[in-house]
């Protein structure tokens, strides 16, 4: 278990009668890429606003770096992007230079390095003339300024074209691999987060429903072969004869994690061994289906 770099405990945020966050207890381990998944309006941005000190929680606590430093001091060592916010009349380099000065960073070469990383080093036009993808990339560069140990990114792929999404993913993976920076990234596009995140949190109606590692999530969503028979023990023997061993049994229902492409062979073996075969089908839960089952809804994540 890695050390928690960010922890919220029963974090609640109310706007009048509306509860935007309801007792959210989130644990973000050092070095993780944490994907916060939820529908629009689920509370992702509100959670980030509370973490970054842009909104005051109604109740609950936020601890960064195990509370070793005061929250405002800890925030100075964080990077964040909640809507890329830059001066429209300044160029990419000038906007980052502004932030570098405000943060009091001594390394004058860092701006150039970050611009190269997000492929904006040759761009001479002002921020107002940027495409959405360029704005998002500059936002990432701004968030990475000062080599923060924790970076908060709110919907970084929102509005990007396919190439932009690939580039953004590449930047995050690259920085994570090179520096071990911890990321917490929100998105409502689960399949995209799945390509970068190591840990997931599912949020809906302000409630953090589940935190799960990528590995466990894939355990829940991997493909399987489901067989329903009259005698599970005889079926197991038949499967054993076919060298199919990774079988879980639930009553007369058998689930195979392997041999998915051997349906005809398995069916024949079961029938030949005198087992009544009621059902045999492939089952696959997509990440989206998993999420929808979790939130109990039928809207897209």
């Amino acid at each position: 278990m890695t050390q928690a770099i960010l922890r919220t405990q029963d974090l609640t945020k109310k706007y009048g009668e509306f509860t935007a966050l309801d007792k959210v207890s989130l644990n973000l381990g050092e070095g993780d890429i944490y994907g916060l998944v939820g529908r629009n309006g689920a509370g992702k941005t509100t959670l980030f606003k509370c973490v970054m000190g842009l909104a005051s929680p109604t109740s609950g606590t936020i601890t960064i770096h195990a509370g070793k430093t005061h929250l405002s001091a800890a925030r100075k060592k964080m990077g964040f992007m909640i809507n890329p916010s830059f001066f429209s009349y300044l160029k990419a380099r000038e906007n980052l230079e502004y932030l570098r000065r405000v943060k009091g960073l001594k390394d004058t070469g860092e701006v150039k390095r970050l611009l190269k990383l997000v492929e904006l080093d040759g761009v001479k036009k002002p921020f107002k003339a940027f495409s959405l993808g360029m704005k998002q990339r500059l936002g990432i560069a701004g968030a990475l300024l000062g080599s923060p140990s924790l970076v908060v990114l709110d919907e970084p792929i929102n509005g990007l074209d396919p190439q932009g999404i690939i580039d953004m993913r590449g930047v995050i993976k690259n920085v994570h691999a090179q520096t071990g920076t911890t990321f917490i990234i929100s998105s409502h596009i689960l399949s995209e987060l799945d390509l970068v995140a190591t840990q997931f949190g599912f949020i809906d109606h302000g409630v953090l429903l589940q935190e799960i590692s990528r590995r466990d999530l894939h355990e829940h969503t991997k493909k399987s072969l489901v067989i329903e028979v009259d005698q599970a023990d005889r079926a197991l023997v038949a499967l054993e004869s076919l060298n199919v061993r990774d079988v879980s049994v639930d009553g007369n229902r058998l689930t195979l994690a392997t041999a998915l492409d051997r349906c005809p062979e398995i069916a024949r073996a079961l029938v030949e061994s005198g087992v009544a075969l009621f059902d045999l089908h492939r089952q696959e839960t997509t990440l989206e289906e998993y999420f929808m089952r979790l939130v109990g809804g039928d809207h897209n994540a």
Binding site: M52, L54, A74, K76, S85, S88
Partner: peptide, 18 residues
Amino acid sequence: TDDLNSKNLIALVGFGVS
């Protein structure tokens, strides 16, 4: 007002400037 237009206040507060 440039601060408001560019949402720079959000960036400053988020970066821990009081």
